[in-house]
Amino acid sequence: MQPPLLSTQGLGLQIEDRWLLKGLNLSLNPGSFVAITGSSGSGKTTLLRTLAGEITPEIGNIDNQLDSPTKLAMICQDLQLADGATALTNVLGGSLGRHSFISTLWRFPPDERKEASRLLSLFGLAEKEDQWTSTLSRGERQRVAACRTLITRPLVLLADEPVSSLDPFWADQVLSNLKSTIIKRKGCLVCALHNDEQVEKFADTILRLDSTNPEGWKIETQKLGIES
């Protein structure tokens, strides 16, 4: 069995004086989809940001086996798109890390433009690639943000409620596309989700957080049942 891409040992997270989580041992294995569920305020976003390296945990360790920081990417809830740029340019923004300033000063390389167009088509936005993102609906913007993160070719993709504004059809499409793309390259997709149907349909591993008890978290696998 391959070692986990990222794992936590005894992780404890706190916001101000309130403990959100204590003693979390979680492994992000290659080729897996981990869903994080729990009511609002249970610590889903804080956990994702901690895994992304934006927050230092109060206690415990994170063991990151990725060889480059660009192998880990996150889709934030507030999307963080450039409103005055087209959907295509926003997606291409995800590929900037692979190119020098000079090579992207006037336009992006043709193969990157092709890849960005392909991703936008995959997410049902082929017709809108030349529109400013400010003119898109929240659901469409959410899909642009997903495409921008995918074009970075991450191995670990952390997504904070990536389908919250989408109708059931597009929510399933987006989760399915994210999962297939990441799993194909033996990566791990971690999604904070609210919808139980989506969790059961897509996740291999489910981390259920308890907002009333920081030690009350549970990790379940779809086939093996309760693990810890």
Binding site: A52, P69, T70, A73, M74, C76, D78, Q80, L81, A82, D83, A85, T89, N90, L92, G93, G94, L96, G97, R98, H99, S100, F101, T104, L105, R148, T149, T152
Partner: peptide, 20 residues
């Protein structure tokens, strides 16, 4: 926000300024 997001996705400060 977009500038910060692009930085976290690997863009250089100048690239993040230009596209974010």
């Amino acid at each position: 926000d977009a500038q910060e997001a692009l930085r976290s996705l690997g863009a250089s400060p100048l690239q993040a300024f230009q596209y974010g």
